[in-house]
Amino acid sequence: MVALLAKELEWIDVQYWFSIFNDWSLVYVILPFFVFELIRYTVLKRMTMDLIKDSIANAITFVAFVSIEYILGILAVTKLYFWVHEHVSLPHLPLNWITIICCILLADFAYYWDHRMMHRIGIGWATHAVHHSSPHFNMSVAYRFGPMDAIFPILFSIPIVMLGFDPILVLLSEVFVQVFQTLLHTEVIKKFPKPIEYIFNTPSHHRVHHGSNRQYWDKNYAGMLIIWDRMLGTFEPEVEEVRYGIDKPVDSTNPITIFLHGLQRLVKQMKKTEGIGNKLKLLIKPPGWEPK
């Protein structure tokens, strides 16, 4: 078994399998599922113009996010990641199943901490609040991104490259985690059997994460495995019905307003806060922090 898992693989095969999940899942799972959700909204008489506009706004924020990601990608991936891999990395790991599985798990763990940081520091929340600002919960919300959502993950993926993992494998693993996360944005699936709910992040756990109910704040940061939350003290089960959104709603379906509202609020708060030190602290202190 170990010999099989340690057997060297070819890049072309690995990229092929990743593309099946990372790239093509949009066609064979995500879009069909979103259509199903729209039908469900219609049947339940919950289909509103606000929901349609909100979904369109989500798609537009995604385009803006991808544009930023693409520009950063050229810089970070081809230059920084490869430089780190070449100069400040442990011995390079061979391409085999053990490396791939461990890389995906590390990418998932990095996602947990990246996500937790985005919730717990002012500048992180200024961008990530965009994702949480929708009052709805469906597949399109998974594509609702903020302007700096592409920047913070780099801080957490570089250490994985430093551990000897190939930069391309790290990127493919990050996308793998992100696609898994996308599939959790639904109200259609209630709960899975207990063993699955115990180990994996599920729609139920992620609904909690999107809840504006006080007990659901800053819980269930996981990407794929909910065990990270269980181990690190941030797990909360879905009990009370979830109210989606943030405590101060955006009340807009304008994609530009949505995309920039977090940063606008942060800048506004910085302007009215006295002292350079306090203004800077707003960037790194938890959201809602005020100087004494």
Binding site: V2, L5, A6, L90, P91, L93, P94, N96, I98, T99, C102, C103, L105, L106, F109, W113, P159, L163, G164, F165, W228, M231, L232, G233
Partner: peptide
């Protein structure tokens, strides 16, 4: 949960997930 505990749990997880492929790679070689 204290920051120290969070730190050591995280380091343990990272050491495990990075250590396993390095050890198996060395054994294979």
């Amino acid at each position: 949960m204290s920051n120290t505990k969070l730190f050591f749990i995280s380091i343990g997880i990272i050491a495990l997930l990075a250590g396993v492929p390095h050890i198996t790679a060395n054994l294979s070689y």
